[in-house]
């Protein structure tokens, strides 16, 4: 049990996907101007990452490994994740307009996001089991959401700050992200300490 807890802590803080592994930077910079949008994006990513780590595990173990076509892993994962997420989006759109308002518009955007594919590939690399894969995906997504919401909150306030002309807009955003990344490096070794 503590092993699972450790896995969760380590993916959220120590190996944070955005700030330590530098995956999923496009939504991180792109849709963090407003807190509302960032929250929606974070929720949708949580959903997609969990779903994609489950489906990619199944594809890897029941299609790729028995047929010995592991070299087609990347393309297979992209195909499966895109299809599953698109299907879910259509279903949510029809069955629950409320949920669609929160998640729907983000889902097709993140289907082939690098964080999504990264989780799927890392799951295979580290040889996680089914439950561990889902937990890893979920933890990565919680880490992403945390960073996303923090960054959007900072940026909303940053819009009012007196920033020198040459740093205005994207540059100050990137500098802020860099500082956050340094801050997150402080978590290094936390997962070993808990062991």
């Amino acid at each position: 049990m503590s092993e699972y807890f450790l896995l969760l802590i380590s993916t959220i803080f120590v190996n944070n996907f955005v700030l330590v592994k530098f995956l999923g930077l496009c939504p991180f910079m792109g849709s963090s101007r407003k807190l509302e949008v960032a929250t929606g994006m974070a929720l949708a990513t949580t959903f997609v990452l969990t779903l994609s780590s489950a489906s990619s595990y199944l594809v890897n173990h029941y299609i790729l490994l028995p047929l010995e076509i592991e070299y087609l892993r990347t393309i297979a994962f992209i195909l499966v994740i895109a299809a599953v997420v698109n299907f879910t989006e259509m279903m949510v759109h029809k069955t629950s307009p409320m949920l669609y308002q929160v998640l729907g518009m983000f889902l097709p955007l993140i289907t082939t996001n690098c964080a999504v594919l990264g989780v799927a590939l890392l799951n295979v690399q580290t040889d996680y089991g089914f439950f561990e894969s889902i937990l890893f995906g979920f933890g990565a997504a919680i880490g992403f959401s945390l960073v996303m919401i923090l960054f959007a909150s900072i940026r909303e306030r940053l819009a009012a700050a007196d920033v020198p002309d040459i740093f205005q807009g994207a540059p100050i955003g990137l500098i802020t992200a860099g500082l956050m990344s340094i801050a997150f490096l402080g978590f290094t070794g936390l997962d070993k300490g808990l062991n």
Binding site: G30, S31, R33, G40, M41, M105, L109
Partner: peptide, 13 residues
């Protein structure tokens, strides 16, 4: 392009 530079989550929103 779904770039989000308009501050919305994508072109459709």
């Amino acid at each position: 392009t779904q770039c989000g530079q308009c501050s919305f989550a994508g072109c459709r929103p």
